[in-house]
Nucleic acid binder design. Structure first.
Lengths: 337, 337
DNA sequence: GTGAAAGCGCTAACAA
DNA sequence: TTGTTAGCGCTTTCAC
């Protein structure tokens, strides 16, 4: 059975006008029960599927959202992408996925591609959050996790400062005084915010020595390995390392094992994000948990809410984080702030 | 500056017809250099972006591909999705991402959504590879990693049988005789193929005892943990475990650590996929590496190649795998078959 | 409550 | 080489 591809055909078969078929498809109230039933039956029988391109052209909306992230391979972003996709689907939207590979140029070309496809909104975790994007303004933009230049975008992210602060505060509680910092790319605001949280808390105590020089790098395993190798070779070796994401923290774990160190006996490690893997590595990872589900769902929400007009709406949303402490035995302890 | 939104406007400004503007946009040869320059300039100046919906409607193609996978959160699929997205982008296509959450029902609704959006092709890793999908046939379909019922789809996957076989062969070489099998969902063909590879190789030697009963479960960490707990409690404890993916293998690692076992001293473990994490866990994971890049790129290739007519084209593509042996010291050794 | 018809922005066939 | 125009499939106003 060849599926029918035009509303005209359906109208003909059902013996009604295209207008009526359209009204039925869109659930308009002013259609008689009789015609509605007839049209519905015809549609089902003919396996008819309305043409989204035509509808989009006519309605000026594609029921599609764009998501631009640095790298879907990063577990934090794949968790995020999943929650965005699920929420978008729940609302009848599709999600176009783009990886910027941490390049603003690639990012811009993705934006262009999305705009050409008339997406109804763009959610983006910018590669470099001090750069602005061209062509934006005709469509709702949500900056996710990372800031975006320009006044048009809404911004949603976690409490990076507070998260780092509570991690370091916990390490101090455990008695650590020499705590090292592994950061993400130095240019990013999230990196700076987490660093400030770290520094500010350490400033509250008196330390014998100065802090180890922070180590910056991409949010991946390798950075953690390199950072740890660097820190562990120091004369005044840190007893704890705070990493800016879980992948880095796992890299630190890896390097500590290679160096023959016990974790947490010889070295304490805290990560950031709380990806599923954190509860699986050996030993389990203590980390600052982001509310990834909420970040994803809310960003869809923002992208889809018509904000035009309501100038006073919140431009920046900061979601709370919580410290998840995992020990070799017993269940994880969640410490909110 | 308000960006211009119609080709008519551009035509007016440049003092030409819409036809000419269209020809310039599409790089048609028969336009004089003078007009081409004028139109190009006007477009750039007006920040004009052609409307993809209208073009798609007219051309019957959306320059968009659909990808349906069980779960982007699974590192194997996020690697795959990335390579698909990169290849699609390279060819000027966008990628719509959908998670089926391992449900055929969800899967079908994603297919419907994609068809309504007139995607030019669908790449799918089916949740259940014995189920067929409705509405397919109007668009090129590529079954990726997992088989799809129906004759219309192309199929591309790795050599699951050979991969499992070479893993088990390697374990035999190391002297293991009691090797356990952790499988993915039992209904999947990939699970069965990997199991056959495992069984067939073991059938070539004489074993004192019978094989441990295989353990099946989703492709995640937890399955590995549970499987290992099960196997390690056996009276006749296996000395090696072959897991059907790296996440499961990492779960086994986790459980072995909890049980106080040394890997590989007390227990050898081999995984499947070779996700980046495999080289980072402690100890590093020996695994069967899939050519994920090629899988992704080729599936885009298949989805985009007009196969209509060429009936003799290969319907099934099987990509070779290789065993990557990682030891506590030294670089990984790649053993192809 | 229903039908007729204009038009969303674009391309391609045809005419000039 | 360039312009004119029909029409892709749909929605919605307007008239009945």
């Amino acid at each position: 059975v060849q599926a029918i591809s035009s509303i005209i055909e359906i109208a003909k078969r059902a013996g009604v006008s295209t207008g009526t078929v359209s009204r039925v498809i869109n659930g308009a109230p002013n259609v008689s029960d009789e015609l509605r039933a007839r049209v519905t039956a015809t549609i089902a029988e003919a396996q008819y599927r309305p043409n989204g391109l035509a509808r989009g052209l006519r309605n000026r909306r594609s029921k599609t959202l764009g998501l631009i992230i640095p790298d879907i391979t990063n577990p934090f972003f794949s968790e995020l992408a999943k929650s965005v996709e699920v929420e978008a689907t729940r609302r009848g939207f599709c999600l176009i996925l783009s990886n910027s590979m941490d390049s603003s140029t690639v990012e811009q070309s993705h934006v262009d591609a999305l705009l050409e496809r008339n997406v109804d909104g763009i959610i983006i975790a910018p590669a470099i959050d001090t750069v602005s994007l061209a062509g934006i303004g005709s469509v709702p933009i949500v900056a996710l996790d990372r800031h975006l230049q320009g006044e048009s975008a809404r911004f949603i992210r976690s409490d990076n400062y507070g998260g780092a602060a509570s991690a370091v505060r916990y390490l101090l509680q455990l008695g650590h005084r020499n705590i090292a910092f592994v950061g993400g790319p130095e240019r990013l605001t999230i990196t700076k915010e987490r660093y400030r949280g770290y520094v500010d808390v350490l400033a509250t105590i008196e330390t014998a020595t100065s802090l180890p020089v922070p180590w910056y790098g991409p949010f991946n395993y390798l950075t953690g390995v390199e950072a740890a190798q660097n820190f562990l070779a120091l004369v005044d070796r840190p007893t704890a390392i705070f990493a800016s994401n879980d992948q880095q923290a796992i890299g630190v774990l890896r390097a500590a094992a290679d160096a023959g160190l016990e974790v947490p006996g010889d070295l304490s490690i805290i990560g950031f994000d709380d990806i599923p893997l954190a509860q699986c590595v050996i030993p389990r990872l203590t980390t600052v948990a982001q509310a990834i589900q909420s970040l994803g769902a809310l960003s869809v929400d923002l992208a889809l809410s018509k904000s035009s007009g309501r100038a006073l709406e919140a431009k920046v949303l900061t979601l709370p984080v919580s410290l998840v402490v995992r020990e070799s035995t017993g269940p994880p302890r969640v410490m909110t702030r």
